[in-house]
Design a protein around this nucleic acid. Structure first.
Lengths: 341, 341
DNA sequence: TATTTTTATGTAATCGATTACCAAAAATAA
DNA sequence: TTATTTTTGGTAATCGATTACATAAAAATA
């Protein structure tokens, strides 16, 4: 049960004041070499370590940032957070993570908690319909950055991928492969990313003179079970689709599993393409085509945008909207002539 | 550029003192109902929010815990962290994450930083050979809990799985399937988990009267490439193995990919079993047998052990060594008679 | 030697909240 | 009415560090 030492303990030991100790420890020029070395040596000997909490209170900078995500145990969010942490750590920032499980109330509670603990910035992949809590962040002058799942707001930076393009490219790829009856698994269309992917899908259809058929669009929730259910529903139509563009790899996986138990050939009978490039899509025997979102990059860029913002001394608010271009990854589930990737 | 309000602002506005405001805000009984309501209303109106930093400095409790892992973008660590966060969040704790990439220096730096920022506990999956930095944590009376990759230390709690049993079970399973020349991909044997898995492997061989052959053991680093290389090496032996127990799913995947390009039949020619139950092992066409480590559980238990520790008012140090039993998951890569799972 | 400048250190306020201790004011008892 | 108790709220210290300001001592200059 050792006590922790403070600069006052050092000061007492040396019969000087805490101010002098602080100066010695901080390379302040107004101090004699002798005293400085003495303090440094004593600090070392006593095992002194700076209390960052006191510093944070004094300076108003906690050197912590908060990251709010639906969940961390997905490859996508894990990679984004990895990128953020790697980029920010060298600058002395630490990352506090909060999970919402997609629950708006939990998101708001997390924002409150982060603000209370005086984080220097909040990065969020939002599940909220409302922007009220974000306005609270801005009112407190805490930098706010959206990544992936954003809300469109003035004076707020965001780092996203072009989900419209992703949806467009995936759909166009299916069309290029000769598919004409293309179904879509959409996520919750209240969330911008899913809405954008859906819009890209529709636009690609239109641009290719293909009619948009409402019953080809099934709402799913990014899990294997929903993918299976969705396929069952589609196969009951008088005119079942010859391709599926899923807004999530998990639904795509479920779809493929279901189709195989029913002896459909993929991609010959039905092509399937997912979204996100989760690791499993690559390793499956029937590898799944998908759209890469570059999560590690997204995290790093989010961190960089934040650093720019805090290092910006101007009064002018920086608003930076970074949009990454997604990349189509073609694998066996859509490639009618077998190919390795 | 709105300013943040403090209890002093509220006090000024009402012509009372900060002490009274604090009492009102904290349900202190020594205050009249009228004043209390007035303060509460004014606080609400001004948008007052408590500065947790000031509270933390005063109380010596930051309500943050630090979690140190090699990386967060793996399903295993992501799940552990998810478990920790879910369990601790209801108690007002936040999780600060640090990545080491397996680098000991970075691990030490992270420990220092976490101690300085006055975390209330440190949970670590260590990559260190040395225990010096852990002793520093203990000297400061900060609860320390190891999970998964531990160091054996007195007075320190840990939550791990029985890696010896995992290794034993996997090997025994291969033997039960008729395999007699069983190779092993070991990780870095300086890390306890890998050493234990290796020991379990050897013990299973011994118990079944099978000779341990040194050239069947290849050191790998948990990635696809190393798995491929290791297989190439093994196939060059005059007496190549008929089964592989890999200490990591990633190496197992690499092995399978390499074996298939060489037209080996799995599991008929060579059986392969991995370790960790990464999601991709389940979804592959040739699903991979593996050993589940229950990472979500591990995280939750780690959090619970921590809570017990901080809520323990006794002077006696709690030392709790929780060892989870791993579960063998048999899939196609080792099941000679085809089976669905 | 006297005066100015420089150097080194001390004093005290500050960041925002909590709380032990004390003192009016109000309520109750005599 | 006076004495006593209870209620309510103020005063000031505290957590640990930084820093503007003041000042004594030392060094430089006249």
């Amino acid at each position: 049960m050792k006590k922790k030492f403070t600069i006052y303990d050092i000061a007492n030991a040396l019969n000087i004041t805490a101010a002098t100790v602080s100066r010695a420890l901080n390379d302040n020029p107004n101090i004699s070499k002798a005293t400085k070395e003495l303090v440094l040596k004593t600090a070392e000997k006593m095992g002194y370590e700076q209390n960052k909490l006191a510093l944070a209170l004094k300076s108003g900078k906690s050197n912590n940032v908060g990251v709010i995500v639906p969940r961390i145990d997905s490859n996508f969010f894990g990679s984004v957070i990895r990128g953020i942490e790697e980029e920010l750590n060298p600058f002395g920032y630490h990352v506090i993570i909060c999970q919402t499980n997609g629950d708006e109330a939990k998101e708001i509670a997390n924002i409150d908690a982060l603000l209370n603990s005086q984080v220097d910035g909040i990065f969020i992949s939002t599940s909220s319909k409302d922007v009220a809590s974000f306005e609270r962040i801005l009112r407190k002058d805490v930098p706010l950055i959206f990544f992936d799942r954003k809300k469109t707001m003035n004076n707020v930076s965001s780092v996203t991928i072009n989900d419209f393009d992703g949806g467009y490219k995936a759909t166009q790829h299916l069309i290029d492969n000769g598919c004409k009856q293309i179904a879509h698994f959409s996520g919750d269309l209240n969330i911008e990313i899913f809405n954008d992917r859906f819009a890209g899908y529709k636009q690609a259809l239109t641009d290719n003179g293909i009619d948009y058929i409402e019953e080809y669009v099934v709402k799913t929730r990014s899990n294997v079970e929903d993918g299976k259910k969705a396929v069952k529903k589609l196969l009951k139509l008088k005119n079942p689709p010859d391709a599926i563009f899923s807004s999530s790899d998990w639904d795509a996986l479920g779809a493929i599993q279901e189709l195989r138990t029913k002896n459909y050939k993929i991609p010959e009978d039905i092509s399937v393409i997912g979204f996100s490039n989760e690791p499993f899509t690559k390793f499956m025997e029937l590898s799944i085509s998908t759209v890469d979102q570059f999560p590690l990059e997204m995290g790093k860029i989010t961190a960089k945008v934040f650093l720019e913002q805090v290092n910006n001394s101007e009064k002018v608010k920086i608003e930076k909207k970074v949009v990454l271009e997604p990349e189509l990854i073609i694998r066996k589930s859509t490639k009618k002539t077998a190919v390795k990737k």
